[in-house]
């Protein structure tokens, strides 16, 4: 039954990959990548339980954090075309 859950996560990731490859806009792709990241966090935990080594959860925790930072970094880069802009204390809007 745990194996079935792992398989279901793999199927979900595969389906989401279609959206990431097809997505008409940049934001669809970022959304798909973020969602794949969330599913991979869960899949890693499930694999840990499947093999009887729950230490895999450490990798899950790290993946959850890296996933968030990666999403924000991609969005920041495509908004300002640079990583060297401070995101705080800035009136609303962007370069436009």
């Amino acid at each position: 039954m745990i194996g079935a859950a792992a398989l279901a996560f793999v199927v979900a990731i595969g389906l989401m990959l279609i959206r990431a490859l097809k997505g008409p806009t940049l934001y669809d792709r970022v959304l798909a990548v973020n969602s794949i990241g969330t599913k991979i966090v869960l899949l890693l935990g499930v694999i840990g339980f499947l093999t009887g080594r729950p230490d895999f959860l450490d990798i899950s925790v790290l993946y959850a954090l890296i996933n968030f930072v990666a999403t924000i970094a991609i969005l920041k880069f495509f908004r300002y075309r640079s990583f060297q802009v401070s995101l705080t204390r800035r009136p609303s809007g962007g370069p436009k």
Binding site: M1, I2, A4, A5, A6, A8, F9, V11, A12, L15, M16, I18, R19, T25, Y27, D28, L31, A32, S35, K39, L42, V46
Partner: peptide, 28 residues
């Protein structure tokens, strides 16, 4: 194991929604 399975099925349902919905904001 049952709850885990339900959770993974919900992940598939969400993915199906992302594939079906017509524009970016609804996919969100």
């Amino acid at each position: 194991a049952f709850l885990l399975l339900v959770g993974s099925l919900l992940a598939i349902i969400g993915t199906v929604g992302v594939l079906r919905f017509p524009d970016f904001y609804t996919r969100l």
